[in-house]
Design a protein around this nucleic acid. Structure first.
Length: 450
RNA sequence: GGCCGGGUGGCAGAGUGGUUAUGCAGAGGACUGCAACUCCUUGUACGCUGGUUCGAUUCCGGUCCCGGCCUCCA
């Protein structure tokens, strides 16, 4: 497999440190609110990577953290007059529900920041002892000047940070670029005892601590949104590599492009976002997923309703091709796999899928057709698509009106037999009003919900 | 000011130094009682401008426009 590595800015052949065991970490959510569709893009993108890696290697450990201590959570709790734990457990549950609806597999592990406070404190102590960090006024701050490789991921030159940039001036920092590892908490704020008094961790140290615990000092792939390159990932590298005496941190860095709306970045601070929850009310989870996969993961993706409608139309066609697909395993197409091996070229893989679907429709021999169907399904499954059945996709799982539908179809059948086409069309129109579309085939009439 | 992406047919979106994906939508046809599904046919697009080349959408330069990052962010 070939992957684009953000730190070298080149496509590189991927070779895991342990040829039988790939280790991957992706930055997960800060659980202060419901996920928006932009939060879902990295989840779906790295879910495809996870599926690919599992297909190609014996063992894959995929860690995605839950950040459940953060000032945004504190603000949300205060605003809603509920406990912090209420906010975090509820939003964690919502997050998992939303991502499951988008067809994302659960990662191997989903560690929580609050369950790794001791590990963070230990790393911070190491960094102080090695003189990469200093304590002042209850804060512990990373000393960027002591880290001479600082900036290697983002390639930002510290001296060039001039006007236009927001540079925080905090009294406890030696340099404006220094970032906080630990900060003090007052009695109203959540906090843990530490060598520097009661306090809580800064933003970046949680990921370093959880990576170290679950994947070790050096691991294979670190992923996240492109906006995390600076400062989050840059700071993770600094903390971890300084703490580990220069042992390399992630070997491959992967960043997904932003989701945009009407040409503008979608973000909570701009207010131009859709939550996954509200989109799920309108569209099938799988259609949302296909839309998120419609552009290459490193490209920006413009979220527009027409594209989701297009994705739905594509899935209709795909599932039509899978009607009668036996429930048996198939083989992933080589042409399809090769697309994905080239830095997850999903759009090109999808075009292979279209070819397969077309061949299924044209195949007359039933046995051949079923083989093609199984292989098509196996291929699509690598993208987390076509995991349902045609019946479920078209007819849904609610069944209270199925008897009525079948009754109407039978009545129409009788009318057609009597050449009473007017009555037959009346019945069909009546069903259409209820969102039921009929299709006459050589084996009788089938129906779909629209 | 610094750093980084991107501009492809009505729309979405890959890719490539020359045979110019793929899909959605549209048009025509076949099938059908009529439809739907499906099948067949149909679309020479790569911001502008120089250069390199036999040949550039693809390489190089310039230029215009759009977007992102520069400590809230996926």
């Amino acid at each position: 497999m070939i992957l684009y590595n953000s730190i070298t800015r080149k496509k590189e052949p991927f070779t895991p440190l342990d040829p039988k065991h790939v280790k991957m970490y992706v930055c997960g959510p800060t659980v202060y609110d419901r996920a928006h569709i932009g939060n879902a893009r990295p989840v779906v993108v790295f879910d495809v990577l996870f599926r690919m890696l599992k297909h190609l290697y014996d063992t894959v450990t995929y860690v995605r953290n839950i950040t459940d201590i953060d000032d945004k959570i504190m603000t949300a709790a205060a605003k809603k007059q509920v406990s912090i734990q209420h906010i975090t457990t509820e939003n964690t549950r919502f997050y998992n529900e939303d991502m499951t609806a988008l067809g994302a597999l659960p990662p191997t592990q989903t560690p929580k920041a609050t369950e790794h406070i001791q590990e963070m404190i230990q790393m911070i102590e190491d960094l102080i002892q090695k003189k990469f960090a200093y304590a002042k006024d209850g804060h512990v701050v990373f000393d960027v000047e002591r880290n001479n490789t600082y900036g290697k991921l983002s390639r930002l030159n510290l001296d060039d940070q001039i006007s236009g940039a927001r540079v925080e001036v905090a009294p406890y920092k030696k340099n404006p670029q220094d970032f906080v590892l630990w900060k003090p908490s007052d009695d109203t704020q959540p906090g843990w005892d530490s060598p520097w008094g009661r306090g809580r961790p800064g933003w970046h140290i949680e990921c370093s601590a959880m990576v170290k615990k679950h994947l070790g000092k050096t691991f294979d792939i670190h992923g996240g949104g492109i906006d995390l390159i600076f400062p989050h990932h840059e700071n993770e590298i600094a903390q971890s590599e300084c703490c580990h005496d220069g042992s390399p941190f992630a070997r491959y860095w992967m960043h997904n492009g932003h989701l945009i709306v009407n040409g503008e970045k979608m973000s909570k601070s701009l207010g131009n976002f859709f939550t996954v929850e509200e989109l799920r009310d309108t569209y099938a989870g799988e259609a949302i997923r296909l839309t998120l996969l419609s552009a290459h993961y490193r490209q920006p993706l413009d979220w527009r309703p027409e594209v989701v409608a297009q994705s739905t139309a594509i899935l209709d066609r795909f599932y039509t091709a899978l009607e009668g697909c036996p429930d048996a395993p198939g083989t992933v197409s080589d042409a399809f796999l090769n697309c994905l091996k080239d830095d997850l070229n999903v759009p090109e893989a999808l075009s292979q899928l279209h070819t397969m679907v077309s061949n299924i429709h044209k195949e007359k021999d039933l046995f051949q057709k079923q083989t093609l169907q199984r292989n098509c399904k196996a291929s699509a499954n690598l993208l987390g698509l076509l995991e349902s059945t045609a019946e479920n996709w078209f007819q849904g799982t609610e069944s209270d009106d199925v008897l009525w539908i079948e009754d109407m179809i039978e009545k129409r059948h009788q009318a057609k037999k009597n050449k009473d086409f007017k009555e037959a069309d009346t019945i069909r129109d009546k069903l259409r009003e209820k969102g039921i579309l009929l299709e006459d085939t050589s084996n009788g009439t089938t129906w779909k919900r629209k």
